[in-house]
């Protein structure tokens, strides 16, 4: 199986062809100019991950709270994580770095506040 992806690590934007086994295991990559591209290709084609940032409404505050996942989570879980966030209740005050939700959906990643809300 072959997959064509663009490397996102620098503005050169190499177009890389990734060769995968039928079971989806990474075999090889061509088209990258440097090792960073190869590392990204392997990750992106086998276990793509993303940081998620979002805002959640807070009762008693006109301004919503901005949050992020402490570490990247599997890309296919983005929608689920957003859904989990929509039912979170936050009480004031909040400081940047506070954990808002532990281990969201078993991903091992906490949701943490990225700003202060007094």
């Amino acid at each position: 199986m072959e997959q064509v992806i663009t490397c996102i690590n620098c503005p050169v934007g190499c177009r890389m062809t990734v060769h995968l086994s039928d079971a989806g295991e990474f075999l090889s990559v061509t088209g990258n100019t440097c090792p960073r591209g190869a590392r990204y290709a392997r990750q992106e084609c086998t276990m793509p991950e993303r940081m998620i940032t979002a805002v959640i409404p807070v009762e008693g505050s006109a301004c919503p709270l901005s949050v992020k996942t402490a570490t990247p989570v599997p890309k296919k879980m983005i929608r689920d994580v957003m859904a989990a966030l929509s039912s979170v209740r936050v009480s004031l005050p909040v400081s940047a770095g506070d954990v808002i939700l532990h281990d969201v959906l078993g991903t091992g990643s906490d949701i943490i506040a990225t700003r202060n809300l007094p």
């Binding site: 940081m51 901005s66 990225t114 700003r115």
Partner: peptide, 9 residues
């Protein structure tokens, strides 16, 4: 890698 509000903070 920080978010904008964290960088500002």
């Amino acid at each position: 890698e920080l978010t904008g509000p964290e960088y500002a903070l």
